Simulated scan of single mutants.
Amino acid sequence: MCSVANPIRSEIDFEENGRHVGYLRLPNSVHRSAYGWIPIPVGSVRNGTGPTVLLMAGNHGDEYEGQLLVAQLSREIEPQWVNGQVIFLPMANYPAADAGLRTSPLDDGNLNRSFPGDPHGSPTAVIAHYIESTLLARSQYLLDFHSGGSSLLYHGGNMLAVEPNDAEEDSRLRSLLAAFGLPRAFLHSPNPLHSSMAARRQGAMSIVTELGGGGTVQRRLLLEARQGVLHLLSTIGVLNGPLVPWRAPHETRFYRVAGERHYVYACERGVFEPLVDLGERVSAGQPAARIHFPDTPSREPVLVAFESAGEVVCRRTFAAVQRGDCLFHLAEPAE
């Protein structure tokens, strides 16, 4: 990790007890504002002694469910109900979230492919460095809220976690996922550029969500995610009081995402026709989609098949596709 100080400055003191809200100031010298800064919303509720949890959303700017949830919880959780600290970062990559884009319009930066970041880098790299070196460095837990964004739609509520290093971590991780209690939990191989690995490097446990998507917000998913977060915060001893639900929203089933064979991609440019629905179980070789070519009416559509068996947990929302666009994403039971 680079030892150079990060240029971002916080308007709030993370050591102070009570509720505090403000902005992380990211210096941004541009034609419109020579000495300006980018406002990244941040909040903290701190009281007593206990773990620190970072609730982060807006990692990708077109994923709205988490942005609403983190902002809502920052208003709802009172300091007297907290033992430890909850940090709220509802629009982590603020330029992307403000524009409603997956990546930042300032540098085309994908925050969840930018960790550990660089304090001398582009705006997205500076944000990634601050999150890892300052916020995650003081946290024991990370909840990073994602969804399918504009181009993808996930089947209901899902959680992702990096495959554990050993049996002890596996037991602890499964307990956390069960306490959150969304219907499905995927275990996946580590990617050093993701927030989950940034958390691991700082000694924190992490859970990433995939809540719906398609550029929309589904009320049921938002309510279930809120219930799950509050139940998890209570389980780890950070939260008590009237907000705590008596149970998790669902009994979680565990899945594994096994690399390329669980993904289906467009092989040509055209119009995507799905042949299966979300939640459907499919077999290897089963037709997944047709790619049509309305600009060449005499041409027959191309059939795309699943390489592997599994459950359809995600599909593309946009009908127009280009070669290499993801059409479907599968998962298989982990047991």
Rank of each mutant, 00 (worst) to 15 (best):
S104C: 07
A125H: 12
G121R: 03
H129G: 13
Y130L: 06
S104V: 09
P116F: 07
P116K: 01
F115S: 12
V126Y: 02
P119H: 06
P105E: 01
Y130D: 03
I127S: 01
F115K: 13
D107K: 03
Y130F: 15
I127G: 00
R113G: 06
D118G: 04
P123R: 01
L106E: 08
G109M: 05
N112Q: 01
N112L: 04
S104L: 09
T134F: 08
Y130M: 11
T103I: 14
D108E: 13
I131H: 01
I127V: 13
L111T: 01
N110H: 13
N112S: 06
H120C: 14
D118Y: 08
R102P: 07
T103Q: 08
H129M: 14
G109Y: 05
I127Q: 00
I127F: 00
G121D: 07
H120E: 14
P123I: 03
Y130I: 00
S133R: 15
F115Y: 15
L106F: 15
F115W: 14
S114H: 11
G109Q: 08
S133H: 08
P123S: 02
N112D: 13
A125K: 14
S133I: 07
I131M: 14
T103E: 11
V126K: 15
S122P: 00
T134W: 02
D118W: 00
N112Y: 02
G121I: 02
S104T: 11
F115M: 14
H129E: 11
T134G: 00
D118T: 02
P123C: 06
L106H: 10
S104Y: 09
P116H: 05
L106I: 15
G117V: 11
G109T: 07
D107S: 05
H120N: 15
G109N: 04
G121W: 04
T124H: 05
L106N: 10
R113N: 07
D108T: 10
I127D: 03
Y130R: 04
D118I: 02
A125G: 05
S122R: 15
T134D: 09
R113T: 08
T103Y: 09
P105M: 02
S133K: 14
G117W: 06
L111H: 05
S114L: 03
V126Q: 15
T124P: 04
H120P: 01
R102A: 12
T134V: 15
H129W: 06
L106W: 10
H120K: 14
R113H: 12
L106V: 13
T124Y: 07
H129F: 08
D118S: 13
N112M: 07
R113C: 08
N112F: 04
E132N: 09
I127E: 00
L111I: 10
N112K: 00
T103N: 15
D107L: 13
L106A: 06
S104M: 13
P105L: 08
A125M: 10
G121K: 06
A128D: 11
P105H: 04
P105S: 04
P123G: 06
E132G: 14
